[in-house]
């Protein structure tokens, strides 16, 4: 992975920045509320200036993006958001008293900062959980879960975090991330994710088949 980054040229560097530039221009247009030549032009200029002035390390995109899994993620996210909101709203006013909680360590499969960040963001909004601490070196998320009366509830939260990670990896994870998830699924006797020919070649090469 890192070897690829050092070899990228100017043009590829620009391509990697492109999603950020496009997003900034879209945001600019949304704020103005109309699309004219001037607003697009100023948007492009502002986006370029902002990305030069407030330089951030480039996000290591995998180059994969699955529209289908992106939509599936968005749908599950919306459903979970409504469910979690109603649940927490109920826990807040539940006359039986406040819930018992736990802090659990969830071992993610990915090594990607982007996927870790997205997972942390998504689970904070979704299934009764909140990220207390992040161990980037070991890809560990320490999650505070609200309302976990027993071990079964704790394992349910752990599983739900991993399901969110899996959806994000399916959407934009690298071949390595998909491989890590598939390896665990095979070890647990579950069917692996449906593999593209390219992914199958990658996994065969990594596992020496």
């Amino acid at each position: 992975m890192s070897g690829r980054i050092t070899e990228i040229g100017r043009w590829q560097g620009f391509l990697l920045q492109l999603p950020l530039l496009v997003w900034l221009v879209v945001l600019w247009l949304l704020l103005w509320g109309h699309i004219t030549v001037i607003s697009v032009l100023t948007g492009v200029i502002v986006a370029l200036v902002v990305t030069r002035l407030f330089y951030l390390p480039p996000v290591d995109l995998s180059g994969r993006f699955s529209v289908y899994w992106g939509l599936a993620f968005a749908w599950h996210f919306a459903v979970d958001l409504v469910r979690a909101s109603v649940l927490v709203a109920w826990q807040a006013v539940d006359p039986r008293g406040v819930p018992v909680n736990s802090v659990l360590a969830v071992q993610l499969h990915t090594r990607s900062d982007l996927i870790m960040t997205l997972t942390a963001e998504a689970i904070s909004l979704v299934p009764g959980s909140l990220v207390v601490e992040v161990d980037r070196e070991r890809s560990l998320l320490y999650v505070h879960a609200l309302g976990t009366p027993d071990d079964a509830a704790i394992e349910r939260v752990r599983h739900s975090v991993l399901v969110v990670e899996e959806r994000i990896v399916r959407t934009l994870g690298s071949e390595h991330d998909v491989w890590m998830i598939n390896r665990e699924r095979r070890a647990a006797g579950r069917p692996p994710l449906r593999l593209s020919a390219r992914q199958r070649r990658y996994e065969d090469a990594r596992e020496g088949r």
Partner: peptide, 9 residues
């Protein structure tokens, strides 16, 4: 109120 704390562990 915490029944488990894996961060403390």
């Amino acid at each position: 109120l915490l029944i488990r704390d894996e961060l403390a562990d």
